[in-house]
């Protein structure tokens, strides 16, 4: 019975390919094909007015890129933004998860509220943050004024714009981190924690020696996800500052859009995109290394 089925399984032959053919063709047409085209475009002088006709110009776009001050700004901004949103987003999310770990009355309601930042569509969230950060009337400055710090030009000054954007980003990603970490915390065996406590370990010790090692792998995964999202993130930055003031918040992805649709230089824009892609791939690669190492450790 089983062996005849296995034989059938082998006779399946082309059936698996028939199944994957349509989705794969679709992905090739609308995702991977365009991606390859975009990479190719970075070696051409394509312009938006005539996006299908561009001549091969070798590495000229990359020469332009590497002599452009904006590129170094964008690169640095992307790195700083990614690293800080990962650290702070994971920190705030994990602390939230720990704070809500033990049951108490009203926990479900508070958890729901804490998920808002993740559930609200980015564009709607951006609009309310624009109003909160508004120069003359925004409530963020009302608060700093009341604290004697004066009104802060949150989104319009080079000193504050990136910080404000990171604030909004952390508001958006930390709930997701919290959700994932809450699930991870539930898998920490309570008996082990209890045993450690009976042995006289204080709360901090239990956390450091029992809880943290248990949730560390999940934390790594979520950190890598947040990193990839930060490299990809477009609308929040584009709508809050448009990459300004004077390019100080223009990540590679935002700069790609500005170069393509405001300067109409598709070749140079593509070069920005390729650098962004390489960064995202590097993060994904680190993820795979972690996974491989974990698989090895577990198989031992």
């Amino acid at each position: 019975m089983t062996s005849s089925l296995l034989k059938r399984g082998r006779l399946l032959g082309l059936v698996p390919y028939a199944f994957v053919a349509v989705p794969l063709a679709y992905m090739t047409l609308f995702v991977f094909g365009p991606l390859i085209q975009q990479v190719w475009m970075s070696f051409t002088d394509t312009r938006l007015m005539n996006p299908t006709a561009g001549d091969f110009i070798g590495l000229e776009n990359y020469e332009d890129l590497f002599t452009d001050d904006q590129f170094y700004t964008s690169f640095r901004v992307t790195i700083v933004y990614t690293i800080l949103t990962v650290i702070l987003g994971v920190l705030v999310g994990t602390v939230s998860a720990l704070a809500l770990d033990r049951p108490f009355k009203g926990r479900a309601l508070l958890r729901t509220i804490m998920l808002f930042g993740w559930a609200v569509p980015s564009v709607a969230a951006t609009l309310v943050w624009l109003w909160i950060f508004n120069g003359p009337s925004g409530v963020a400055s009302d608060i700093t004024e009341a604290l004697g710090l004066g009104r802060i030009p949150w989104l319009t000054s080079v000193d504050w714009a990136l910080t404000s954007i990171m604030f909004v980003t952390i508001w958006q990603v930390s709930p997701f981190v919290m959700l994932v970490m809450m699930a991870a915390l539930q898998s920490v065996p309570e008996e082990v924690r209890e045993a450690a406590r009976i042995d006289g370990a204080d709360g901090l010790n239990v956390f450091r020696n029992v809880t943290l090692p248990c949730i560390m792998p999940t934390m790594q995964i979520v950190a890598l996800l947040v990193a990839v999202w930060s490299i990809r993130r477009f609308e929040v930055i584009y709508l809050l500052t448009g990459g300004g003031p004077i390019g100080s918040t223009s990540t590679l992805v935002v700069q790609l859009r500005l170069t393509a649709f405001e300067d109409f230089e598709l070749g140079l824009a593509s070069a920005y995109g390729v650098v962004g892609l390489v960064l995202a791939l590097a993060v994904a690669f680190v993820h795979f290394l972690f996974e491989r190492r974990r698989a090895l450790v577990m198989s031992k």
């Binding site: 477009f234 859009r257 393509a260």
Partner: peptide
């Protein structure tokens, strides 16, 4: 490949899709 789509910035596809 499916995992990679979660890594690719959408912004990279905008121009080629626009042309298409």
């Amino acid at each position: 490949l499916m995992f990679m789509t979660q890594v690719i910035p959408e912004a990279l596809l905008v121009v080629p899709l626009y042309a298409m």
